[in-house]
């Protein structure tokens, strides 16, 4: 998927409900209540936090281009996808990202595998002294332990790892581009990996698109690593998945809920605003469908809100709230989040 396709894909989902900046915060992985609840509302888990380095200038430039080509339009600060935009949406391609699950930790996996391959390649050529591409000491220690545990001198770790990589790259949802980028970023004996710029030049693409496709490859590989089919790489992917993908602050709030405190009490204890704690509740509900919300909203209220949302074909809070004056904004958000989670 290319950058413009990603933007169109997201805008298609939030069309008429959010501003043209919402995709930016989503891609950057902004940890605000709004962004986190949108992930669940609009089923955008794939894209959360995939481009933490994205600059606003690059983003605005891409949005302007979509605008100029009439793929999107903006009306009263809401962004819409146009008919023309829908036509060029890649119909056969699903995004391979899983930003919600990895949150940038895929880079850790990449650094480990890069150093493992470099080391194995050097040792196989009997050139045991080399300068590691990965400078981070904790990565070096991890890889060292991994290599020793896998008896890399005696057994055929090389063959195993190569086979596992082959197996993962042969994944039919990959293009050859995914596979090539992954392999050509790696370095080994007398074979140095290529820079983003060198790869981009070769394929006549932008650096950003090259990085996006590389990321897609990493996420998809990680999704497909299992202890049965790729036991060696499974160990390299240790602690990459985030089991409780809560922000630190939401995590603290969650533990207080578990102890039985109310929203107001938690706000007091943590010296935070009620609004912030409500944001945390939304985040927790997005992640854990078993979290009980009966203290904040009744079953009937949830149904009423979801029904109205369907009828009006909107997830805009203000529109729903206008029709249900006795219900709070927080309750509307809660119902919409719960609704998506159950659908």
């Amino acid at each position: 998927m290319h950058f413009h396709q990603i933007l169109l894909f997201i805008i298609h989902k939030i069309s008429g409900q959010r501003s043209e900046n919402a995709p930016y915060y989503l891609l950057k992985g902004k940890k605000s209540g709004q962004t986190i609840q949108d992930v669940t509302y609009f089923q955008l888990h794939a894209f959360f936090s995939i481009l933490p380095q994205l600059s606003k200038e690059d983003y605005d430039e891409a949005i302007n281009e979509l605008f100029k080509n009439e793929f999107i339009r903006v009306n009263e600060s809401l962004v819409y996808i146009t008919e023309k935009g829908i036509e060029i949406l890649p119909s056969d391609k699903e995004p391979l990202f899983n930003g919600w699950k990895y949150r940038g930790k895929e880079q850790l996996f990449w650094k480990r595998i890069d150093l493992v391959i470099q080391t194995l390649s050097q040792f196989q050529a009997n050139e045991k002294k080399f300068v590691p591409n990965q400078k981070d000491i904790s990565i070096q220690h991890f890889v060292k332990d991994f290599l020793i545990q896998n008896n890399f001198r005696e057994f055929n770790l090389n063959t195993d790892i190569k086979q596992e990589i082959f197996y993962l790259l042969e994944n039919p949802s990959f293009d050859d581009l995914h596979r090539t980028l992954f392999v050509y970023r790696l370095s080994g004996y007398k074979t140095t990996g290529l820079t983003w710029e060198q790869l981009a030049r070769h394929y006549h693409m932008t650096d950003l698109n090259i990085k996006i496709i590389f990321l897609e490859c990493l996420h998809s590989m990680l999704d497909n690593i299992s202890i049965e089919t790729s036991p060696r790489l499974f160990n390299l992917a240790k602690d990459i998945r985030i089991d409780t993908p809560l922000t630190e602050s939401a995590f603290k709030t969650n533990s207080l809920f578990e102890k039985g405190y109310s929203i107001e009490e938690i706000a007091k204890i943590r010296k935070l605003k009620i609004n912030t704690i409500e944001d945390h509740v939304i985040e927790i509900v997005s992640n854990n469908k078993n979290f009980s919300i009966s203290a904040f909203i009744s079953k009937e209220q949830i149904e009423e809100i979801l029904h109205l949302s369907n009828e009006l074909e909107t997830k805009k809070l203000t529109l729903i709230k206008q029709r249900l004056p006795e219900i709070s904004f927080f309750q509307v958000r809660l119902a919409l989040t719960k609704g998506e989670k159950n659908s």
Partner: peptide
């Protein structure tokens, strides 16, 4: 000139069989 890129060949160069 930049050679054609072939990921299978490249992987075999990095880790020869």
């Amino acid at each position: 000139r930049q050679d054609e890129m072939n990921w299978i060949d490249r992987l075999n160069i990095l880790l020869p069989s």
